[in-house]
Design a protein around this nucleic acid. Structure first.
Lengths: 337, 337
DNA sequence: GTGAAAGCGCTAACAC
DNA sequence: GTGTTAGCGCTTTCAC
C-alpha cells in the first residue's frame, strides 16, 4: 500500500481526499480536512516528490549551474538557495568548470529531473547546448550567452570597470595595464569596453600591449601580471586593473614575488569584493559586486517568470549596480619617489 | 505516448527492450542494441529520472546539507560534487544555517526525493531529527552528532589543536587565549581538548578566563577577541588560538581595531587555511584542514557504503590529518620589546 | 464534498 | 532475447 493510501485509511477517507487536503485544502470540508491533517501530522507523512512531479510533469526543483565554486560563487549559490527555500523550491547544483562536457552533462541530467527552471552561469558552450534548454525557463546569472529567450541578471560591468579606470586616471596614471577574462565571455568583454571607454574619455589611446586575457582563475592572473610587468620600470604600467577576483589574487601574488609594493610601486584595482581584499594590507580598491543579491534576484526573476508563465511574459534583463570602492591600493604613480 | 515508447517505435522494438538497452545492455542482442542506440542518439533521449526513481524506489541523488556556505564549505561542496558526478550521482544542496527549523525542513524535503544517501554536517539538532534519517545511509562530515549508525569523515581536531598550542608554548607563551565554537559541537569540543592537553603537557594550568565560545561566525570571533584583550597588557594573553576560519577573521579585525600588531604585540594561530590567511601580512599560522579532500572522502565513503549495502557493513570513521602550518603570525611573546 | 479510476514514464517479473 | 504486464505513489478528471 502506498503511503498516501495509508493516511487515507487512517483518516477514513480516500487517497484522493488526502491529496486534495494537502494541495488544495479549500476543496475539502473543514471536518474532513482536520481528520486528514491529524493523520498526516501523527505519521509525519510527506508526499513523495518524485511521484508528484512525475504525475504533474514538473517538479518543485530548479537547477543551478555555476562555473566554479570559489567564494564568489558560494555567495551567489547562497543567495539563490535562501530564496529558493522560501519559495519551496529545491536546488540541484552543478559545476560546469567552464567545460563543454560538464555543462552538457549537467543540462542533460537536469532535464531528466523535470525542473521548473534553471539558473545558469552560461559558458562559451551554452549556445551549442541550446537544445537542452528548450521548454525551460532560464535565468542567466552573472554573464549572458546571447540566447534571446533567457532572462539575465547581471551587473553594470562596463560602468563598474570604467569607474575603476577613471579613478586610476584621476590619480595621474596613464599606463594602465589590464587583465580580463576570455574575450568571448560577456563579462570580460563588457569590462574591457569600460576600460577602453575610460581611457578614451581621458584622451589616452589604449595600448594593446598593456592588455592580457586570462581564464578567470588565479594562476592566469599571476602569469598575466608577470608578463605585464616584465620590462623596465620606465615603460611598464604604473597601475593594473584586474577584472575578476581570482585573477586579482593571482596579481597580488605576482606583485609580491616581484617585490613591488602596493601602491608605492604600482597601483592595483580589482574586481569583486571579499574579506581578502578588505583585510589585505593595504586594502584593495575593487569594483564591488552585490554578490548575494545577484543570487537572490536571479531566483526572484525565475520565480516571477514561472508564475506568469501563461501570460505573454516579457523577458527580464536586470542589471545591478557594482560600485567602485577606492581603498589603499590605488595612489598616484611614483608615489614612492 | 511516453518518451520511452517513442524510441521503442523508432527502433521497432518494445519499451522494455529500450529500457534494457540503456540499463543492462548485456541482456540485449548486439543488433537490437545498435538499432536502439541509434534511435536514442538521434533523438537525444534520456530516460526520465523521476519515473525511473519512482519505479525503483530510490534515486541517483544524494543530499548534501551544509551548515553555511562560506569559502570553507564551498570547497567541501566542490569535493563532494566532483566525486558525485564521477559516480553519476546528483547532489541536492541544502543550507541549515545551524537552525533547527531549516535542518528539519532540509531533511524532510530530502526524504521525499528518495535519495540514495546523505552527506551532512550535523548540528546540535541532528539527534532530534534522527527519525528523518531512518533507512538512509548517512555520512557525517566535519562534525559528528553521536548517532551511532552514521559514517563519519572528520579531521584529527584534537591533535591539530594541540599541535598549534604546543607551538605557541614552545615559543614561550604561557597565557594563551582561546576561542572555540559552541561546546556542544564536536569540533569545538575536540579542539578545546587539544588545547587543554597541550597546556597540561607543559604543566600550564588552563585558565578558564582565557577561554571564550563563539558561534563559528566572524562577528563572534571579533567579540570574543575584544573581550579576551580587554585588560592591562601585563595580564592579558600574549597569544590567541582561534578554532575556526570565520572567527579567526573576526579576531584579525579585532586586533586591528585595538591597534595590536601581529606578532609583535600578540601571536595568532588560526584554524582552516585559506588564501586570506596566506596573503595576510604577516601570513597567519593555521591548522590546515584538507578541505577539498574531506568532501571527496565523504562522498567516497557514501558510495562505498551504498555499494556494499547488502553485506553487513562496518560503519566507517575516517579521520584525516590537519597539520599545523607555522607562519609569521606566531612569534615569541613580547618580541616587540 | 468525496470516491473511483486512469495515468505520469519508467523498470522488472514473467511468459514465450 | 524480447514482449506483455503490472505497478512505483501520487494527482486529477469524471461521476455521484
Amino acid at each position: 500500500m502506498n503511503r498516501l493510501a495509508e493516511i487515507a485509511k487512517l483518516a477514513g477517507v480516500s487517497a484522493a481526499t488526502v491529496s486534495r487536503t494537502l494541495t488544495r485544502p479549500e476543496l475539502v470540508a473543514e471536518r474532513t480536512r482536520r481528520r486528514v491533517m491529524n493523520a498526516v501530522q501523527a505519521t509525519g507523512f510527506r508526499p513523495n516528490e518524485l511521484a508528484r512531479s512525475l504525475k504533474q510533469s514538473t517538479s518543485r526543483t530548479i537547477g543551478l549551474v555555476v562555473t566554479d565554486l570559489n567564494p564568489f560563487h558560494a555567495t551567489l549559490v547562497k543567495g539563490v538557495q535562501d530564496t529558493a527555500e522560501q519559495q519551496g523550491l529545491n536546488v540541484i547544483l552543478f559545476t560546469s568548470d567552464d567545460s563543454q562536457a560538464r555543462e552538457h552533462e549537467a543540462l542533460s541530467v537536469l532535464r531528466s529531473h523535470m525542473p521548473q527552471g534553471l539558473i545558469l552561469i552560461p559558458t562559451t558552450h551554452t549556445r551549442q547546448h541550446r537544445h537542452l534548454l528548450r521548454g525551460l525557463t532560464v535565468v542567466e546569472l552573472d554573464r549572458e550567452s546571447g540566447l534571446g529567450d533567457a532572462h539575465t541578471v547581471q551587473i553594470h560591468n562596463r560602468k563598474g570597470a570604467a569607474e575603476a579606470v577613471r579613478h586610476l586616471i584621476s590619480l595621474g596614471h596613464t599606463r594602465i595595464g589590464a587583465i580580463f577574462g576570455q574575450p568571448h565571455i560577456s563579462t570580460a568583454r563588457e569590462r574591457a569596453l569600460g576600460y577602453r571607454e575610460a581611457l578614451a574619455e581621458a584622451g589616452l589611446n589604449s595600448d594593446e600591449t598593456l592588455i592580457r586575457h586570462g581564464d578567470d582563475l588565479e594562476a592566469s592572473g599571476r602569469t598575466a601580471a608577470l608578463e605585464l610587468l616584465d620590462g623596465p620600470a620606465e615603460t611598464r604600467p604604473t597601475a593594473l586593473f584586474v577584472s575578476n577576483h581570482e585573477m586579482t589574487v593571482g596579481t597580488i601574488i605576482a606583485l609580491r614575488s616581484l617585490g613591488l609594493r602596493i601602491p608605492a610601486d604600482i597601483s592595483l584595482a580589482g574586481f569583486d569584493d571579499s574579506r581578502l581584499m578588505l583585510l589585505h594590507e593595504p586594502p584593495i580598491s575593487v569594483v564591488a559586486q552585490p554578490t548575494y543579491e545577484l543570487g537572490v534576484r536571479a531566483c526572484e526573476v525565475l520565480v516571477q517568470a514561472l508564475k506568469g508563465e501563461q501570460d505573454v511574459q516579457e523577458v527580464q534583463h536586470l542589471r545591478l549596480e557594482a560600485p567602485f570602492v577606492p581603498r589603499g591600493s590605488t595612489a598616484p604613480p611614483w608615489s614612492a619617489r
